[in-house]
C-alpha cells in the first residue's frame, strides 16, 4: 500500500504553530505517541497503525483543539483536512485488503488510546497535537 502523503506541506503548517501548541502542554513526563516505540515499530504492520493513528487524530484530537486564535484554528483545519485526505487513501488500501492489522499494530494502537484517555481530554488533545512532529517523522519514513 504505497501512498503519497505530501508530509512537508503538513510539516510547514505545523511548524508555524508548534511552539505555541507545545507550550500549552505542561506535562513533560508523559507522552501519547511515545517517539521511541513508534520509531522501532515493525514495518509490516505500519500501514494499519498509520491509518489507525490518522483516524484517532480525526475522531478524537482535532475536535478538542479549538483555540482562541483564529490563525491557529485555520492552521489546525489545514492539518486536519490533510490528514483526512491521507486517511481516505489508506481506506482504499484497506478496502483492497492491503492494510491488514496484525496483533502488534493493534496492541500499539490500544497503548496510544490508553495514554490519551488517562488525561483530561483538552490537555490530551493539545499534547497529541504537540506530538505531531513525532508522527510526521515516522510517517515520512513510512
Amino acid at each position: 500500500c504505497s501512498i503519497s502523503m505530501n508530509i512537508h506541506e503538513i510539516r510547514d503548517g505545523f511548524g508555524t504553530i508548534k511552539k505555541v501548541i507545545q507550550a500549552r502542554d505542561p506535562i513533560r513526563t508523559a507522552s501519547i505517541l511515545h517517539p521511541h516505540s513508534l520509531h522501532n515499530f515493525q514495518i509490516l504492520d505500519s500501514c494499519c497503525l498509520a491509518r489507525s493513528i490518522l483516524r484517532f487524530y480525526l475522531d478524537k484530537v482535532f475536535r478538542h483543539c479549538e483555540t482562541g486564535s483564529l490563525y491557529i484554528n485555520r492552521k489546525i483545519s489545514g492539518i486536519a483536512n490533510s490528514f483526512l485526505s491521507i486517511e481516505k487513501k489508506f481506506r482504499v488500501c484497506q478496502d483492497e485488503n492491503m492494510c491488514n492489522c496484525g496483533e502488534e499494530a493493534i496492541n500499539k494502537y490500544h497503548q496510544i488510546i490508553r495514554n490519551y484517555e488517562q488525561m483530561d481530554v483538552t490537555l490530551a488533545a493539545m499534547k497529541a497535537l504537540g506530538e505531531l512532529d513525532i508522527l510526521l517523522n515516522w510517517l515520512e519514513a513510512y
Binding site: 480525526l58 475522531d59 482535532f62 475536535r63 483545519s77 489545514g78 486536519a80 483536512n81 490528514f83 483526512l84 485526505s85
Partner: peptide, 9 residues
C-alpha cells in the same frame, strides 16, 4: 469549510 469540518466538526 473543509471536508473535515463537514464530516467531523
Amino acid at each position: 469549510q473543509g471536508e473535515y469540518e463537514r464530516d467531523y466538526a
